[in-house]
Amino acid sequence: MGRIIVITSGKGGVGKTTCSANLGMALAKLNHSVALIDADFGLRNLDLLLGLENRVVYTALEVLAGQCRLEQALVKDKRLNDLVLLPAAQNRNKDAVTPEQMKQLAYALTKKYDYVLIDCPAGIEMGFQNAIAAADEALIVTTPEISAVRDADRVVGLLEAHHVKTINLIVNRIRPAMVQANDMMSVHDVQEILAIPLIGIIPDDEQVIVATNRGEPLVLSDNFSLSGVALQNIAQRIEGKDIDFLDLDAPYDTIFSRLRRFFKK
């Protein structure tokens, strides 16, 4: 039986879909079979980030309507054999499916795939309820901004109320120079406030936009990028490996800032 993990945040635009696409790819690269479910009905984007938009034929909605088999709707990735995408319908809204139906789809996929990752829509309405219905585990994506952290806290509360036991935190778009200048919350600040275990730190990186433009997730790219490494590390931590967090402060850690920290303690 595969693990069902929902990737959620509350606030939009913090990097849920980017994380879903990259973690799916990274887990597939680690020789796991992965099914990605786009739960954002009406505003689907996961197919774009994966570069699979031209190959979508059927969506989850046709499967539920009995118009095609589940397997027919799955879009197989050509770069990695063990990765499939179950696209969301684009022409219907988020009320088109029920939590019960999402459970059916996710449970069916766990029979064949090691990991079923669900990309949750923003907000806490029906689309969110659908996305979390089947999940045993959740990854909360947040950025070090007040609104994102507040929404993340709300979502953690809702997940706990739905008995999602394992909840881990990904802090995205960290800008180490701003943290050093005390103009941004550090990963530690965010983690302390939300009080859930940390599973990943991703630096703010322009390469993410380049990768999105190309439809080729960072973890597949040959070019080295810090954010790509961070995402691969998260995939390994999901597997259960104990990987050290990246030290993003290192380039900004001058002898002066070290001295200052030393004397402040």
């Binding site: 901004e145 806290d153 103009d183 919350m185 406030i193």
Partner: peptide, 26 residues
């Protein structure tokens, strides 16, 4: 160099604002 700025930083501001708003939310 040794003391840092004396003014409260925007990082301190955001942390205290968040803590208050989250206590109310929760």
């Amino acid at each position: 160099l040794f003391l840092g700025q004396d003014d409260t930083t925007s990082r301190d501001n955001v942390k205290s604002r968040l803590k208050i708003v989250l206590a109310q939310d929760r």
